[in-house]
Design a protein around this nucleic acid. Sequence first.
DNA 1: GGCCGCTCGACAT
DNA 2: CGAGCGGCC
Length: 664
Amino acid sequence: MGIQGLLPQLKSIQQPVSLHRYSGQTLAIDGYAWLHRAAHSCAMELALGRSTDKYLQFFIKRLSMLRATFKVEPYLIFDGDSINVKKDTERKRRQKRDENKEKGLELWKSGDNRQSYEYFQKSVDITPEMAKCIMEYCQSQNIKYLVAPFEADAQMVYLEKEGFVHGIISEDSDLLIFGCRKLITKLNDHGDCIEICRDDFVHLPSRFPLCQLSPQEIRTMVCLSGCDYTSGIPQVGLLTAMKLVKRYKTIERVIQSIQREGKLKIPKEFLQEYELANFAFQFQRVFCPQRMKLVTLNDIPHELSQNETIFQCIGQVVSKEDGIKKVMIDDNKIDHNLHRRISVGELNPRNFHKPLINRERKLNLVSRSEPILKKTAVPTCGSIDSFFSKRSVKIGSVKAPASVATSIADDRNRKVETTVERRKLSRVQTGIDGGVSKFFNSTKNGSSALVDLHMSASDGELRIQSNPSINNVDFQISNIATKTDMYASRPPSSQNLDSTADDCQEDLSTELPSSMLSTEIPSSMIPTQTDQEQTPFSEEESEILSEVEEAAIPDKQYNAFANKRHCKSIADLRDNFSYRRTPLQVKSTNTRSHSVANPQTTPSHGKLVVVKAKRSATTSCVNPVARPPALSRSSSRLISRSSPAAQKPTIRSLSLAEFVYKGE
DNA sequence: GGCCGCTCGACAT
DNA sequence: CGAGCGGCC
């Protein structure tokens, strides 16, 4: 929503410029705004839960335009969790989206493609998983990105204020209220855009003299007329609000005068909304990529530092003590490291218990486990065959029992058997396409580059970046540190829960619990002693799959469409998931040396290398976030047993397997 | 003059 | 989701 009517009032200072003007500079970009635009090209795929790379292509196109054509360094910022003040609005939006999706589905079933598409477009929900897809691309291209703890707006303004970026690309006029100095809007494919500079406020016409208002008065003005945090006072638009604030200065006096006049009605909740909004605009929590911790957009003045109301509306954060997200006043008790993991996209910002997984990767794993079943259901579809024949595979010879196919849709109780069955089936495939990229599961050239990158990030390889404002090295090192920390704080009782993980990883458990390894280390890097062919899915993949299964994706609807589309979509997505349009940089060969290009590495040796690399990286890590020295495994167990917190399963000590399987 | 509710374009083929 | 238009006070 932003501030209705603000941008038109600023028309006179909107400067049409070209991105050339920012050559050599770094600009923050509102990632969700781009995702929203990009999602229009694939609304149907998103609504139907199908894999697509169209939104990624939008980013690839735009990002390469910025970098190659204009020499502008992008810094993508994604939204994180929603702050309390906005939860209501978000719920309403979600409801609306769901309604539209349902209508779209109905129309789709009845064959009205065109109309259903319109509803699908209105139903588009941008998820962190989609953002993660972009993030992984960014990693591969050394493009800076950050997941804000809450709103990207506040985060971007913070980055600008602290000099990490020179300006902000966004369509949202809220940015100016947060204190943005240089707002770049309406960027098109040619690099034309509109620049709005705070310094130009002095040139505004006298009917909208923004420069005569203090930042506090500007906030008061937008709160009166309505913004994301307040519904405002009915009948008060921006200009009326401006006049009121110019004359009466403070909210108290404005309200007094309104009450005296008696013409306008002030909603009951307005004053409370105002207070919350005013704090959220000033002190919303953001992540500092340099100090590697949560901070507030502006420093909270000392006299307000114990004001609980402030902390209620700047975003709830996770406590180090009990791992619960709540209102927190004491900065020292915040789990800054967990928030760092959210900021790099490692954990789901909306549910920090779960790892954040690239949408397409997740879907591909699901479809990879299902094509045979789908084939059983749709014997007339030829696309799958043709797809597999590209790999000279004769999948047709593998017959899935019909009961397996039906059990998925009909019998949730048989889920486990079904899963086992599926995995058995897919072993056949894995044996054939072994060693392919697991990112998008494609054999096309270039498609594995992202995976290589992923691997290099996981094995502790240090990548030095030219721009010091964000430090990938730290990201990666502390990633690794975190995992070993998690391991250290894990109660022994939870180890049994790992049994859901694939059997072949068991011998690792004396070194690192397999579930710990699974989030980051691609299976191809962990050769196992038991035969590779028995492992159709890496452990990570299994966990993702299990998560998907657990979430009970709306397969009924999906199956309903299978007759028409599904087979084609699988073939399509695999064909499409290459990066041929924008070839990725080839990583130096030594990066992959002991993963992909070194297949003869003995299983146990390979494992040892991985573990060692992680460990040594941990110990040599200089983590900016102060934390106690890593506990030895045994001592941490003792502590886990004796501490009262360990009696009930605390969040911090949950294993990854639990995260994945239990969710919240 | 200013507020409010409505429709339309975004995207990309 | 924002812009732009017309209706209404």
